[in-house]
Amino acid sequence: MTTGIALLGAGIFAREEHLPAIEAAPSLTLKAVYSRSQKSAEALAAASRDPSSVAVYFDSPAVEGRSLDDLLRRDDVAAVSVVLPILQQPAVVEKAIRAGKHVLSEKPVASTVADAVRLIGWYESLADRPPLWGVAENWRYLESLRYAAQRVREIGGELVAFRLQMYGSIKPDNKYFNTEWRKVPQHQGGFLLDGGVHFVAGLRFLLAAAGQEVKKLAGFSALLNKALIPVDTVHAAAVTGGGQSGTIVISFGMQFKSGTEVEIVTTKGVVSWSPTEVRTVAGKGDGSGDKVEERKEFPYSSGVTKEVAAFADGLAAGKLDAFQSPREALKDLEILQALLESGDGGAIVKDISL
């Protein structure tokens, strides 16, 4: 038995990542798509495996029976995947849940911590087994990141230090940036919020494997690429609940430097992660003081296919994967917002409380 699902949102990410991921899940059947415009909704349906079986819904032009509300009234659609602009998502998530649909919504969970807390609080107040709601963070489903977390746990020891370093350059023709809501952002942080939350999630994932989480940070922000308003770069120092310090660097404005790495240093070794490689250095454990080095490579993956598959499995089980918990996504957002606010205030110290 399969679950009927609708895809809400027709951007590049919806078309190139979520659409094939939904169609790859054996227990999901794509029934409908929705976008703000008829043209974009029809383009999304046309990209599906069987366009004739996918109904199209849109806001503009107004056509009777083709609105989002009409879609949400369909009995054969039990779930929706929401891949809409950041500011639009919370209202659509709430509307879908009120309509009795299970929801997988894109990261970040909302544009601000306050909006996320309100939405999550409303959802958690619902009685009588409400529909399931998960927030998609595909990095938590990267095989390389999970392997790195496994190595952190295997090596063991107490956390000593940590480092998140991401340098990149977003060009004007970047397919993810080249949409009006990203080029002229109305949400805090611009591309730093939209893209940077992935890197925060990756850091949190590996720190959790070491039994720690960020509890305090302070940093500076800058705008290096004038197109990436309001800021595209943060440099920060951070401290865990256990008192260990580390650094966080996220930049989308570096023209001549690129790469992503999260490093976890413990009293027994080091694990360095990038999306396609995990390197470890650890003692032999024989008292000799000699070190063992390991390097493992991984094919590139966005993690979206596994993320959607986990959502489908959760629907079948009646309980979603803990990694898709809205509160897990809220913690990512709180750190990212703290980085932005600290930088805006000139390295004011921000406590992480959630």
Results as ranks from 00 to 15, higher is better:
Thr179Lys: 11
Ala208Phe: 04
Tyr176Gly: 07
Ala14Ile: 10
Thr276Cys: 11
Ala317Ile: 03
Lys101Asp: 07
Ile250Phe: 08
Val103Ala: 07
Gly246Asp: 02
Arg279Lys: 15
Leu44Tyr: 11
Leu164Asn: 01
Arg182Glu: 00
Tyr300Met: 14
Ser27Asp: 05
Ala317Val: 02
Val135Ile: 14
Gly11Val: 03
Ser221Val: 12
Gly343Asp: 03
Ala149Val: 01
Ala14Cys: 12
Tyr147Arg: 14
Leu336Val: 12
Val308Gly: 00
Ala116Gly: 00
Ala136Val: 02
Val200Asn: 03
Ile86Gly: 02
Gly189Tyr: 07
Ala79Gln: 07
Asp69Leu: 13
Ala32Trp: 01
Leu340Tyr: 14
Glu261Met: 08
Lys319Ala: 12
Ala317Cys: 03
Ser325Ile: 11
Lys39Met: 07
Asp173Leu: 06
Ser258Lys: 12
Arg153Pro: 00
Gly241His: 06
Gly4Met: 07
Asp59Lys: 08
Ala161Cys: 06
Phe177Ala: 10
Gly4Val: 04
Ser53Asp: 07
Ala55Leu: 09
Gln89Gly: 08
Val109Tyr: 08
Ala347Leu: 10
Gln188Phe: 09
Glu307Arg: 06
Glu124Ile: 06
Arg295Met: 09
Trp122Arg: 04
Arg66Met: 06
Lys31Trp: 05
Thr112Gln: 08
Leu71Thr: 01
Ala99Thr: 04
Ala46Pro: 00
Leu217Ser: 03
Leu320Phe: 12
Val308Ala: 01
Arg118Met: 04
Gly285Leu: 13
Gln186Met: 11
Pro299Ser: 12
Ser251Leu: 04
Phe13Arg: 11
Trp181Ile: 07
Pro61Thr: 06
Lys268Phe: 07
Lys284His: 06
Pro90Thr: 10
Leu224Lys: 15
Ile348Trp: 01
Arg15Val: 04
Val200Lys: 08
His102Pro: 00
Ala43Thr: 05
Glu341Asp: 15
Leu206Pro: 00
Ser53Ala: 15
Thr2Glu: 04
Lys31Glu: 12
Val83Thr: 10
Gly168Asn: 13
Leu330Arg: 04
Ala32Asn: 02
Thr179Ile: 15
Thr3Arg: 12
Arg146Gly: 13
His235Lys: 08
Val262Trp: 05
Thr112His: 10
Asp313Thr: 15
Glu261Asp: 03
Ala322Asp: 13
Val152Trp: 10
Gly100Tyr: 08
Thr233Met: 11
Tyr300Lys: 11
Glu293Tyr: 12
Gly195Phe: 05
Ala222Ile: 00
Val234Asp: 00
Ala322Pro: 07
Ala208Glu: 15
Leu330His: 02
Arg49Lys: 14
Gln188Gly: 09
Gly4Arg: 05
Ala201Trp: 00
Phe311Cys: 06
Gln188Pro: 11
Val113Gln: 02
Asp194Asn: 13
Lys95Gln: 14
Lys306Tyr: 07
Ser67Val: 09
Gly343Cys: 12
Ala24Pro: 00
Val103Tyr: 03
Asn225Gln: 10
Glu124Met: 09
Gly190His: 09
Val239Asn: 02
Ala210Lys: 11
Ile229Lys: 15
Ala329Asp: 07
Ser52Met: 05
Lys107Phe: 14
Phe205Tyr: 14
Ser144Ala: 15
Gly202Ser: 11
Ile12Met: 07
Gly9His: 03
Tyr57Gln: 04
Asn225Leu: 09
Ile155His: 00
Lys216Phe: 05
Asn174Ser: 10
Ile335Ser: 05
Ser27Ala: 13
